[in-house]
Design a binder for these strands. Structure first.
Length: 862
RNA sequence: GGGUGGUUAGCUCAGUGGUAGAGCGCCUCGUUUACACCGAGGAUGUCGGGGGUUCGAAACCCUCACCGCCCACCA
C-alpha cells in the first residue's frame, strides 16, 4: 500500500507562503502555463484584461482584475481549453505622460522646456520602471501573462494597427476634422474628451446685465461675465411674449460697443434667469450650436492659456477669472448690472488630471463620427451577441451608447500615437497609412490620438490585426472581458465600437464580466488623499498571495463593490493554514490516491457522507464559477473544507484512522482532498499546488483535470445519519458546557435508541470524552431518537440544567405554535404546495414530541 | 435634471415566496498529539418607515425617508 512516504515528500509543520510562491510561479512558467498556441486543437478561451492604470501606484483594483481573470483561466485550462490572455499591459495612457509632467513640474520645468523628442524618451524611461512593477505584481499573484504579447507596445505592432484603422475609418467617413467647441485645459494645453471632464459644484456668481439702451435694451443673465466681450448675439425663446418685439432687432453690446442681433432659438429656456441669453459662439457649446443655426460670427477672446486676448479692450492680457471681476466692476460703474447673486452654486467642468477649470474653446480637432458605431455596439448587446454580466448593469451601458456625442480624438500632447495625417503647403490633407509616406515638405499633424483610440483596439490589434493571423482566426472574438464597471464607458464601449468596425461587424467579446470596485473596510472609496489605499504587495508579503487572492475572489459579487480590510485577508490566511494542517494530518493518517475508490456501498456512513458533500459542492461550485459568481463559489468551497471536512469528517473519522479498519477511509480522504484542492486551485493556486503535488505525487494542478461531480456518489441516507450524529454531538457538548465540565474531562456515558447513531458510538465516545464503563446515570438526554445517559459523579447542576431545558422548551413551543397556526389556516391548507404542508406537519410532530420530552425531563429534575 | 444601485447582527456583506445567514468582532470554557493563524459553546436582528398583493413577504408592487455611484450644454 502506498503512503506519502513513497514519493518522499512531507509537509512542513507550519505553512509559510513565501517558501512556495516564487518556486511555483517559476514552475508554471516552465510548464508553459502562461502561453497559448493558436495551432493547438483545443477549444479556445480568450480573456481580455483591462490596462493597468499606469500612474506609478499599484492599485488593489489591478489585483482584483488579475485574481478573477486567473481564476477563470485556471478553471478553463483544467477543463481542457486553450487559454489566451490579452493583458492590457501597455497603451498610450495619458496618465503616463502626466506622471512625467509632474516630475518635471517638481523641478520647475514643463515638457515644453524639454522638447518633444526628449520628453517622449523620458516617458519611455519611466514606463520601463512602472511597467516592471506591474508585471512583478502579476507574477507575485501567480496570474498569467503571455510573455510573447506582453511587450506589445505603442511603438511596434500597435502603431501599425492604429494607423491602419485610422485610415480605414477616415476613408469610411467615420473620422473628420472640424472646428468645434471642445473642452480645453488651459494648464495642460490640450483638448479633453467628455469623460476627462469632471463636473463639480462650484460657488460662482450669477449676474444680470443690461445690453442696449432704453426701449432697445434687454437684460441677460450669466455666470461668466467676461465672455460678454465675445458675444455675437442675444438669444430668446421664440415663444417668449416678453421679447417678441425685439426678435430680429439689434442691441448695443456694452464695453465693446458693437451692435449684435437678438435671435430666437428653442434652446433658450424662458423660465431660467431672465429668459434672455448671451451668445458667445467661440466659448460655449450651446452658444456654438445656436450660432451655427443663426449664422452668428465666432469671436475668440481668449488664448490657449485662458488669458483674455484680441478683444481690443482694456481687459486684454488679464486672466479669465480676473477679467470676470474687472468686467463686472466696470459694468457696475456704468449702471448696467441689474442683479447679482453671489455665491451662485452651479456645476463647472474641471480637468480630471489637474483640476483646472475647463475652458470651452473653439478649435480644430479630429473627431470620430460615433453614431453608426455606437448603434452597432448597442445592437450587439440588445440582440444577445454580447452578454453583459451581471445583466443589471446593461442600462448603464445603453445609457452611454445610446446618447454618445461625436468623439474628439486629437490631443495636444506628445506621448501617444501621432495622428497619421500630413498637411501640404496649400493646406492639402493626406492620411498616411502603414508603409506609405507623405510627399516631401509636408508636415505631420502635431497632435496625438486619445488614449482610448488605441486601447480600444486591444481585442484585435494584440492578435496581429490588420494581418489575418492564426491568433485572430482562433481567438477572436474573445470569450470574456473581465473588468470593473467603472471602466465601462472609457474602455469597453470604445473596444466595442472599434472592434465591430475593424472586424467586419463581429463584436470583440462574447461576455463582458463586470466586477465592482475595491473599497476600504468601511465601504469608502480608496484615495490617496484619504490615506486608505491598500497596497497589494504589502499584504502579499504579510499574508501570502493566496490569502489576498482568496479574499478578493470571495468578495467579488457580480457588479457590486467590495469592502476590504486587513482583517479579511488575515481570515483567508487562516483558511490557508487550516488547509495545510488538514492535509498534513490526512497524510499522517495515510490518506492517498492510489488505486480505484472502494465501492461506494461498501463504505461506512461517514465516508459516504463526505463523498456526498464533496460531489454536491463540486456541482454547485462549478455552476457558480461558470456564471462568474466568484463570491458564492468561494464561500461554498470554504465551508465545505472547513466545516464538513475539518470539523466533522476528520473528527468523526479519528477513531477509524486509529483502528485497523482504516484502508477504505484513507483512500476516500485522499480522494476528497485531491478533488477539493483542484476545486480551490483557481482561487488559491499556490497552496493547492503545493499540497496536491505532495499528497498525490502528481506533477501540477495546472495540467490536471477539473473535478466532475458524480451524482452516483451522493447518498441521502448517509446525510441523514451524519446529521443525527451532528445533532447528538452538538447537544451533548452544549449539555457539558452548561454543566461547567471542562472539554477534556472524561465522564462515563452510554447510548441507546437510534441504531444509526449507536453504530458510531466509539467515534461519539471519542468526540464527547465519554468513558464506556458501568455507572449509575445522573442525567439522561434524548436527541435525534438517541438516549444518552451520563454520570456526573452523582450530582448535576440542577439550575443550569433547568435553565437549558427551559430555553429549549421555549424554542420548541414557539416552533410548535407557528406550525399549528399554519396548519390551522384554511388558506394555507388549500393553497400551499403539498411538500410544504408535509414539511410543516413533520415539524409539528417533531416539536410536539420535543415538548413532551423536555417537559418530562424538567419534571424529573429535583 | 436623467439614469442607476443600496438601506438585513457591533462592522462589511450574502440571501429573488415557506422556521433570519456568513466572515470579522464580542462573551464563556479549553495547551484533547493536524491546526491557538485553533477547538467547543454562547449572545446579538419588529430585515429603513408606511401601505398593498399573497395562505405565507427580508424577498413582489406602491409610497416616503436617507445614503451612494454614473451621466449631463441650464446660460
Amino acid at each position: 500500500m502506498s503512503s506519502p512516504a513513497s514519493h518522499g515528500r512531507e509537509l512542513a509543520a507550519t505553512f509559510v507562503p513565501a517558501d512556495i510562491e516564487s518556486r511555483l510561479y517559476q514552475k508554471w512558467l516552465d510548464a508553459g502555463y502562461f502561453t497559448a498556441d493558436a495551432s493547438s486543437s483545443k477549444e479556445p478561451f480568450t480573456i481580455v484584461l483591462p490596462p493597468p492604470n499606469v500612474t506609478g501606484v499599484l492599485h488593489i483594483g489591478h489585483a482584483l482584475d488579475q485574481t478573477l481573470q486567473d481564476c477563470l483561466s485556471r478553471m478553463k485550462r483544467m477543463k481542457g481549453f486553450e487559454v489566451l490572455w490579452l493583458p492590457g499591459m501597455d497603451h498610450a495612457g495619458i496618465a503616463t505622460q502626466n506622471v512625467v509632467e509632474k516630475q518635471l513640474a517638481s523641478q520647475g520645468k514643463s515638457r515644453h522646456d524639454l522638447g518633444r523628442e526628449d520628453f517622449v524618451a523620458k516617458v519611455w524611461e519611466w514606463k520601463a520602471e512602472s511597467g516592471g512593477a506591474i508585471l512583478d505584481q502579476m507574477k507575485r499573484m501567480g496570474s498569467g501573462v503571455d510573455w510573447t504579447r506582453e511587450r506589445f507596445t505603442m511603438d511596434e505592432g500597435m502603431s501599425n494597427a492604429v494607423v491602419s484603422i485610422f485610415k480605414k475609418m477616415y476613408e469610411a467617413g467615420l473620422i473628420y476634422r472640424a472646428e468645434r467647441i471642445i473642452n480645453w485645459c488651459p494648464r495642460c494645453l490640450t483638448a479633453l474628451s467628455d469623460i476627462e471632464v469632471e463636473h463639480q459644484d462650484d460657488a460662482g456668481e450669477f449676474v444680470q446685465i443690461r445690453y442696449g439702451e432704453g426701449e432697445q435694451s434687454i437684460v441677460i443673465a450669466t455666470t461668466r461675465a467676461e465672455t460678454m466681450l465675445g458675444d455675437g448675439a442675444v438669444a430668446v425663446h421664440p415663444d417668449d411674449p416678453r421679447y417678441q418685439h425685439l426678435i430680429g432687432t439689434e442691441v448695443l453690446l456694452p464695453l465693446v460697443n458693437r451692435m449684435i442681433p437678438i435671435i430666437a432659438d428653442e434652446l433658450v429656456e424662458m423660465d431660467f434667469g431672465t429668459g434672455a441669453v448671451k451668445v458667445t459662439a467661440a466659448h460655449d457649446p450651446n452658444d456654438f450650436e445656436m450660432a451655427v443655426r443663426h449664422n452668428v460670427p465666432f469671436v475668440v477672446i481668449m488664448n490657449e492659456h485662458g488669458v483674455m486676448d484680441g478683444t481690443g479692450t482694456e481687459f486684454d492680457g488679464m486672466d479669465r477669472f480676473d477679467a470676470r471681476v474687472a468686467v463686472v466692476a466696470k459694468l457696475k460703474e456704468m449702471g448696467r448690472i441689474v442683479a447679482e447673486k453671489r455665491p451662485y452654486v452651479h456645476a463647472v467642468g474641471h480637468c480630471s488630471r489637474c483640476d483646472t477649470t475647463v475652458e470651452p474653446r473653439l478649435s480644430k480637432q479630429w473627431f470620430v463620427k460615433v453614431a453608426p458605431l455606437a448603434k452597432a455596439s448597442a445592437d450587439a448587446v440588445r440582440n444577445g451577441t454580447v452578454k453583459i454580466e451581471p445583466a443589471a448593469l446593461e442600462p448603464r451601458y445603453f445609457e452611454w451608447v445610446d446618447n454618445m456625442h461625436d468623439w474628439c480624438i486629437s490631443r495636444q500632447l506628445w506621448w501617444g500615437h501621432r495622428i497619421p495625417v500630413w498637411y501640404g503647403p496649400q493646406g492639402e490633407v493626406q492620411v498616411v497609412g502603414p508603409g506609405e509616406s507623405a510627399p516631401v515638405g509636408w508636415v505631420q499633424d502635431p497632435d496625438v490620438l486619445d488614449t482610448w483610440f488605441s486601447s480600444g483596439q486591444w481585442a484585435f490589434s494584440t492578435m496581429g490585426w490588420p494581418e489575418k493571423t492564426s491568433d485572430l482566426a482562433k481567438f477572436y472574438p474573445t470569450s470574456v472581458l473581465v473588468t470593473g464597471y467603472d471602466i465601462l464607458f472609457f474602455w469597453v464601449v470604445r473596444m466595442m465600437m472599434m472592434s465591430i468596425f475593424a472586424m467586419d461587424g463581429v463584436p470583440p467579446f462574447k461576455t463582458i464580466m463586470l466586477h465592482g470596485l475595491v473599497r476600504d473596510q468601511f465601504g469608502k472609496k480608496m484615495s490617496k488623499s484619504r490615506g486608505n489605499v491598500i497596497d497589494p504587495i504589502e499584504f502579499m508579503d504579510k499574508y501570502g498571495a493566496d490569502a489576498l487572492r482568496f479574499t478578493l475572489a470571495r468578495g467579488a459579487n457580480p457588479g457590486t463593490d467590495q469592502a476590504l480590510a486587513e482583517d479579511w485577508i488575515g481570515g483567508s490566511r487562516n483558511f490557508a493554514t487550516k488547509l495545510w494542517n488538514a492535509t498534513r494530518f490526512a497524510m499522517m493518517n495515510g490518506a492517498h490516491v492510489e488505486g480505484d475508490l472502494p465501492a461506494f456501498d461498501s463504505l461506512n456512513d461517514i465516508d459516504r457522507w463526505i463523498l456526498s458533500r464533496l460531489n454536491e459542492t463540486i456541482a454547485e461550485a462549478d455552476a457558480l464559477l461558470e456564471s462568474y459568481e466568484f463570491s458564492r463559489a468561494c464561500e461554498l468551497i470554504y465551508h465545505f473544507a472547513w466545516d464538513d471536512l475539518c470539523d466533522w469528517y476528520l473528527e468523526l473519522s479519528k477513531e477509524t484512522f486509529a483502528s485497523e479498519n482504516k484502508a477504505a477511509s484513507q483512500r476516500v480522504l485522499g480522494h476528497v482532498l485531491d478533488q477539493l484542492l483542484r476545486l480551490l486551485h483557481p482561487a488559491m493556486p499556490f497552496i493547492t499546488e503545493e499540497l496536491w503535488c505532495t499528497l498525490t505525487g502528481g506533477s501540477s494542478l495546472v495540467d490536471s483535470n477539473w473535478p466532475l461531480a458524480q451524482p452516483l456518489l451522493i447518498d441521502k441516507n448517509s446525510k441523514k445519519v451524519v446529521s443525527a450524529l451532528q445533532e447528538v454531538v452538538t447537544e451533548v457538548r452544549r449539555f457539558r458546557n452548561d454543566q461547567g465540565l471542562k472539554p477534556s474531562q472524561k465522564i462515563p456515558g452510554r447510548f441507546s435508541g437510534n441504531k444509526d447513531v449507536i453504530a458510531h458510538k466509539s467515534a461519539l465516545h471519542f468526540l464527547l470524552k465519554l468513558e464506556e464503563k458501568d455507572f449509575v446515570p445522573s442525567a439522561t438526554l434524548e436527541i435525534a431518537g438517541t438516549i444518552i445517559e451520563v454520570d456526573l459523579t452523582g450530582s448535576i447542576d440542577v439550575e443550569a440544567e433547568r435553565a437549558r431545558l427551559e430555553k429549549d422548551l421555549a424554542t420548541a413551543l414557539k416552533d410548535q405554535k407557528t406550525a399549528e397556526v399554519k396548519l390551522g389556516n384554511e388558506g394555507f391548507m388549500a393553497k400551499a404546495p403539498a411538500d410544504v404542508v408535509v414539511e410543516i406537519r413533520e415539524r409539528l410532530v417533531k416539536t410536539t414530541s420535543e415538548i413532551e420530552r423536555i417537559t418530562a425531563a424538567l419534571a424529573a429534575l429535583k
